[in-house]
Each structure stands twice: as C-alpha cells, then as structure tokens.
Design a protein around this nucleic acid. Structure first.
Lengths: 82, 82
DNA sequence: CACGGATGTCCTAAAATCAGCACATCGTGC
DNA sequence: GCACGATGTGCTGATTTTAGGACATCCGTG
C-alpha cells in the first residue's frame, strides 16, 4: 500500500463524443452515483448528463472538465503517431 | 525503426481549458502550422482558434476533437486517484 | 404485477457560443 | 524605423446549446 490504488484499469481513448459518453458513464457508475447526483454536484441538468452519456456530442469543454474532475479522472493528450 | 517514432515526449495533462490551449498550441507549432492554416483545415475561424489557445474556455468538445485528430494527438482518460 | 427509482427523450424559452470583420500588437528581416 | 506575416481582441448578429418540465421506459424488488 504505497503506490497505486486502482492501477489495473485500461485508460479510455477518446475519439468521438460517443466514446467520451461511455467513459463518463463508466466512471460515474464506478463512483456509485446516479445521473441526478452527479449532475447536481457539478451544476448541470440531469437530462443534459443523460444526453452526454449517450454521446450527443454537443458538450462544452468547460462542463466536461468539471465533470471529470469530480469523478477523479485525468485527461491527457499525447502523440498518436506510431 | 520498428516501434515508435516520437516516444520521448511527456503527455499533457488537461486540468483546465487553459491547459488545453497550451497543448493545442504546442502541437500546432510542432506541426509547423499557422493558426490560419489549422483553422481552415478543420473548418473553424482563425480568431476562434486564437482564443482557444489563449484558454478562453468556451469551446465545444466536438470541435476540439476534430482539432486534436488533425494534429495527430490522442486523448485518454484514466483514474487520477493515487 | 404494482411500486419506485433511475434513465431516456421531446419540447420551448433563455442563454451562450461562433463566425467574421476591423483593427491593434508583436516579431523578424531588411 | 518600415514592411509584413502572425497573432490578439472588441464587437455584433446568427446559430447553437442548455435548463427544465413533462412524460415514457426500463428494471429490480417485494
């Protein structure tokens, strides 16, 4: 018990807004939150979160970042050319 | 010449819209593109890209994804809890 | 199968974003 | 210092998104 707590999970790769939605749902469920709870905690509407998870793709980045922070998820960017 | 081409770069961690802006600028410059060129290639306005790189934070995720794809950048999500 | 909680979806008004122009500023080369 | 390309920024209208309510659907559980 000195380095990592949940190391054995694959990161999600985000290609589309739909894949973002899947990831958010995964982390939300893992956190044991309902849509209503998470939405309220980050100040967005529940129906909006529902649509986001379904991948409607109209999200504003600012809201997504708040959402991820709340879920303890880190977003990283790196070269994909290999 | 068998595995990776540009392996020795640190990934960018995205905490805020400002850090996204920095990352986009980094990859754009690395690609040798001007704002006008990149903006035109992904179908957004140059002034909008300028503001995005400055971190104004009002972007829609859909546009950001197109931008990253164009720059050959991969976005990933993973647990940050450790 | 009735109930309750969670989620999906339609609709509208209200709010926020984006494009595009004009012009300012910054760097660099001459 | 001037010219020129690249970038920053204020502004406005047109477009798009979001909140919120209402209701449907789905799924466990008793």
């Amino acid at each position: 018990m000195h380095t990592s707590a949940k190391p054995d999970e694959q990161p999600f790769r985000i290609y589309t807004t739909a894949s973002l939605g899947h990831a958010v749902r995964h982390y939300r469920e893992e956190a044991g939150l309902t849509q209503a709870e998470l939405a309220e905690q980050v100040g967005i509407d529940r129906t909006y979160l529902s649509r986001l998870e379904k991948g409607e793709g109209t999200e504003q980045l600012r809201r997504v970042i708040v959402l991820l922070r709340r879920l303890g998820v880190r977003a990283t960017l790196q070269h994909a050319d290999w």
